[in-house]
């Protein structure tokens, strides 16, 4: 074996690095902090057992999010959860889950870099999202702690409401530029007042 030169020549680069994002009073867009993201598939028993290993409850109700400090488990389908652990390496999440689920059929796949998070914040956040998302994003219909896969115009996204005026959009990295541009454009064109709480 030849000698190994393993030093990377540059820092890792995210798809929106170096891009100016809107930072207005009414509407702010920011790339979410790095996180480990795991897609877990399996039945209800898998979910139950994974909750302890992951450190946040895996919900069984459609659209629900089980969140605890910097960890969240998003229900995406009856056998599908997106696990997000802010600031952690995927291997650190996978190892305890693998161990806990060893004797039950399941699938754990690292999707940490498949997608990025965008935090959409401000009084106009919901309005900008409704430029491309056909769901009712009123607080009554889409309360805090709701998450779902849906569409933003021509991109698939996962939408998670973290606070009344704070949404997390999870989007595949090559769609991130489109989603960020679309939301920025929508926020510029939205009426300054109006809309329902």
């Amino acid at each position: 074996m030849p000698s190994v030169m393993t030093k990377p020549v540059a820092r890792p680069r995210g798809p929106l690095d170096g891009r100016a994002l809107p930072r207005g009073e009414d509407f702010r867009l920011a790339v979410s902090p790095a996180a480990g993201r795991i897609l877990l598939r399996g039945d209800a028993a898998v979910a139950a057992r994974a909750s302890a290993a992951f450190g946040a409850p895996l919900p069984t109700r459609s659209g629900a999010v089980g969140a605890r400090s910097d960890r969240a488990a998003l229900w995406l389908g009856p056998d599908e959860w997106l696990l997000i652990a802010e600031g952690e390496a995927p291997a650190e999440i996978i190892a305890p889950l693998s161990a806990a689920l060893a004797d039950r059929a399941h699938s754990l796949v690292d999707v940490s870099q498949r997608q990025i998070g965008l935090d959409v914040v401000g009084p106009n956040a919901a309005r900008a999202l409704t430029a491309g998302c056909p769901l009712d994003l009123s607080l009554a219909a889409f309360p805090v702690g709701t998450a779902t896969r849906t569409l933003l115009a021509k991109s698939e996204i996962v939408l998670w409401r973290r606070a009344p005026e704070h949404f997390r959009v999870e989007v595949w990295r090559s769609f991130a530029d489109y989603v960020a541009s679309y939301l920025s454009e929508a926020a510029r064109r939205a009426p300054r007042a109006g809309g329902f709480a």
Binding site: V4, D110, R114
Partner: peptide, 30 residues
């Protein structure tokens, strides 16, 4: 008992092709 997950964007792919391909990558592979 099997599940499918798209990983298209989880992996970028660099194809290194040609008679010197091995020589080129070897110093960096661990």
């Amino acid at each position: 008992k099997v599940w499918l997950t798209s990983t298209t964007e989880q992996w970028a792919v660099i194809a290194v092709q040609g008679p010197r391909a091995r020589d080129l990558i070897a110093p960096f592979v661990e």
